[in-house]
């Protein structure tokens, strides 16, 4: 019987395999996608629920514009410096001829430091570079250097940059060391024997190969700094004008006087980190033509 009639059941069979990821999908929808959608939709809604662009237009005030600009600047600078210094340290360990014993501790320490963010990190920097901090006092008593007089204030933009670097640099080290390990010795030697100088090797071979990783890390560091609240909040309190702190204050007490303006503010954050990642993905696909 079964031989004569084609079995039709498979056609109507439920894709049971997909049930296996149902819990995960439910979780992701409820606690990641829906909340994000809520923000996105809310940014285009009036308090009554109608469609509007007014919230986004209302973002265009001096205070909010400068908050975005400061946040972008902060994220760009800490990501750039984090990448540069982290790369230098990673390269020093991988290629600099340093003893092998340095590597393990550096990786462990980077793991710790990249996770040592938020409130305690702010405390550590206040105790070090704050008005009564260790380094501040030491420079003052030993060398007569008054950091304040030189314009350095921990509770300012550059203070925040220095503090953010404490977790940005190690994150870079953690990600880039495996990438540097992936550079084969043969590539360097092949370049050298073909007459290339060290600089030519880096410019024409090593850097293009590392570029996707560098770019990815940069995007990650950017998002990492852009969304960080705790460190800045614990360091400067609510007064520093950056987007996440503004949003924090808005969520807590509707300081903007319009609940849906908060949606727009948050939507702007998603757009910026999202854009950073789109740029990253586009550049990456372009620079990875030579990969499988």
């Amino acid at each position: 019987m079964a031989d004569n009639r084609p079995d039709r059941r498979p056609k109507f069979r439920l894709p049971l395999e997909w049930l296996g990821i149902l819990p995960f999908v439910t979780f992701a929808v409820l606690f990641l996608i829906l909340p994000t959608m809520k923000i996105v939709v809310g940014a285009f809604q009036t308090p009554e629920g109608g469609f509007t662009l007014q919230n986004l237009i209302d973002l265009n005030t001096d205070s909010i514009r400068s908050a975005y600009w400061t946040s972008i600047k902060l994220s760009l600078i800490t990501a750039l410096l984090g990448c540069a210094v982290g790369f230098a340290m990673a390269a020093a360990v991988v290629f600099g001829g340093l003893p092998k014993r340095v590597r393990g501790p550096l990786l462990t320490f980077s793991g710790v430091a990249s996770n040592f963010a938020g409130v305690p990190l702010a405390f550590a920097f206040i105790a070090t570079l704050g008005p009564a901090g260790l380094v501040t006092l030491w420079l003052k008593t030993e060398f007569g250097i008054n950091l304040r007089a030189y314009g350095f204030n921990l509770l300012s933009f550059w203070g925040l940059v220095v503090t953010y670097l404490f977790f940005q640099i190690p994150l870079m080290i953690l990600i880039i060391i495996p990438a540097l390990d992936g550079l084969k010795r043969e590539w360097r030697e092949a370049a050298e024997v073909l007459g290339a100088t060290g600089a030519q090797y880096w410019r024409m071979v090593a850097f293009p190969i590392l570029f996707p990783s560098l770019l990815g890390t940069f995007a990650l560091l950017f998002a990492n700094a852009f969304g960080a609240v705790a460190t800045a909040f614990a360091l400067t309190g609510p007064q520093l004008n950056i987007v996440p702190i503004k949003l924090f204050a808005q969520i807590r007490g509707d300081v903007l006087g319009n609940p849906n303006l908060g949606y727009a503010l948050a939507f702007g954050m998603i757009v910026i980190t999202g854009m950073a990642n789109v740029v990253y993905i586009v550049l990456r696909t372009r620079s990875e033509r030579w990969l499988k």
């Binding site: 084969k184 043969e186 590539w187 030697e189 092949a190 370049a191 024997v193 073909l194 024409m204 071979v205 293009p208 190969i209 030579w290 990969l291």
Partner: peptide, 14 residues
């Protein structure tokens, strides 16, 4: 000097 290596010494990005 010209040199050939065991394997995989071509520059993958070129």
């Amino acid at each position: 000097i010209g040199m050939m290596f065991q394997a995989y010494a071509l520059f993958p990005n070129m």
